[in-house]
Write a protein that binds this DNA or RNA. Structure first.
Length: 423
DNA sequence: TCTGGGGTCCTAGGACCC
DNA sequence: TCTGGGGTCCTAGGACCC
């Protein structure tokens, strides 16, 4: 059996942990640049006329009228609380697959001596007691069924956030309850396709001929079909995989026209992604830079382009990549536009110890040692304590940095932002 | 004025190799 | 009239996830 544990309204719950005064009141967490809503707690979800996709500036008055407290996103806080939740889950199984920032699979294979429902309740209660984060628990024989059980645990009140699908009757009942859109891995396109042939719930889907599913929905669909029929065929992955691509692209706080300012943001992003690259002990052979104007705007003239640089030797050296990035950016930059976003992608990632050298170029540069030193200083004293001059100063960053007007303190990771009581 | 960001996997088709 | 067989690598596009 497999347990799927998913935090309820995770980002909103994180904010609520440190704001008990907001208990029972609606709260919402905003995207980067405070652009739109990305998470709501139960009270805010109940206000169904407040839409996730609406830009914030269009719904500000509705939020105010409904007394919704909003927070800029605070990924430092969410990441740290996530780690804490996952650590609690490791008490319950030796095999934990962290699937995303707010959900994990627990391998319960061989736990036959347990009352699984009781075990699920223990998980839920222990996580809440040690972290303050409420979770739902779904337990079933395959990942897709466990995911479904998790959904039922939250949607059907009598389960009270713990649902176990153990018997064949449980499984059938769950499949009949689930609409096609409730199946993990079945997106909009396939939903429409299935509905057009009269398939509306998971049970009907599970009864389709497997040959049809394979032909119309590829091997991905067939896997879902088998999992729903109780055959586990999506592997358990306890070790985190190395990323195949690492990228970042954040909208600027305001629109930029000046090349040197865009260069600065670009250098900063390169420093960010190469740090991730080094942390997984890899190097990149391909750097991609893209630049775009604001496609929402009806007034600005639009332009977007990208350029891909294949490097002669794979590298994870920040300075080398910043230099490459700078000349790449020049190739696509055109004067006269108001740019909204610059993006960096590292592709063609190879393990650091498998770098293919080049007869005519030295393999290591002196600055590799410098990069290592910078990493160790930043690990100790915090992000970007030391950085390349090209990635800007505290003052110049204001030109392009993300807007976060309502960010809560990083309560659990910064000494000077600890929660104060009384005062 | 203002509209998020970061990923994965699969397939088909082209280009190429022996 | 009739035109082999077995591969790899790469890319773009589609679909999906959080």
């Amino acid at each position: 059996m497999i347990a799927m544990v998913d935090c309820n309204s995770f980002y909103a719950s994180c904010e609520q942990v440190f704001r008990p005064d907001l208990k029972g009141r609606p709260i919402a967490v905003l995207s980067n640049n405070d652009g739109c809503i990305i998470a709501k707690n139960a009270e805010a979800k109940a206000l169904t006329h407040i839409n996730y996709k609406e830009p914030l500036f269009k719904i500000k008055h509705i939020l105010k009228a409904n007394d919704v407290t909003t927070f800029s996103s605070n990924y430092t806080l969410y990441g740290d609380l996530s780690k804490r939740v996952m650590n609690v889950l490791r008490e319950f199984s030796p095999d934990v697959e962290v699937y995303s920032i707010d959900e994990s699979f627990l391998n319960l294979e061989g736990f036959t001596h347990l009352d699984l429902e009781d075990y699920g309740k223990q998980i839920k209660e222990r996580v809440y007691r040690l972290t303050g984060i409420p979770v739902g628990v779904g337990i079933a024989p395959s990942k897709v069924l466990a995911k479904l059980a998790n959904r039922m645990s939250k949607k059907i009140p009598r389960y009270n956030h713990v649902c176990v699908l153990q018997t064949e009757e449980d499984r059938i009942e769950a499949l009949q309850w689930a609409e096609v859109k409730d199946i993990w891995g079945l997106g909009k396109k396939h939903q429409q396709r299935l509905q057009s042939i009269g398939v509306y719930n998971a049970y009907q889907f599970s009864k389709l001929p497997v040959t049809w599913v394979r032909k119309e929905m590829t091997v991905v669909g067939e896997r879902l079909w088998r999992e729903l029929n109780g055959k586990s065929c999506i592997a358990f992955e306890t070790l985190p995989r190395k990323k195949k691509g690492i990228g970042t692209a954040k909208s600027f706080g305001k629109k930029l026209s000046d090349l040197s300012t865009i260069e600065e943001a670009c250098a900063y992003y390169i420093a960010e992604v190469t740090e991730v690259l080094r942390a997984q002990r890899c190097a990149t052979s391909c750097l991609q830079i893209f630049l775009t104007t604001n496609y929402h705007s009806a007034y600005d003239s639009q332009y977007a382009d990208k350029v891909t640089i294949n490097l002669p030797i794979p590298t994870n050296n920040t300075f080398t990549l910043i230099k490459e990035g700078k000349s790449a950016l020049k190739k696509i930059y055109k004067e006269g536009y108001r740019y909204k976003k610059v993006g960096v992608n590292l592709l063609g990632i190879v393990p650091e110890d498998e770098i293919q050298g080049n007869l005519f170029m030295p393999c290591t540069s002196k600055s590799d040692a410098l990069v290592k030193t910078v990493d160790s200083i930043n690990n100790r004293y915090g992000k970007a304590t030391i950085s390349s001059g090209r990635s800007g100063t505290k003052v110049s960053k204001k030109q392009w940095e993300l807007i976060k007007e309502e960010r809560s303190p990083r309560f659990t990771t910064q000494w000077d932002e600890l929660l104060e009581i009384g005062g």
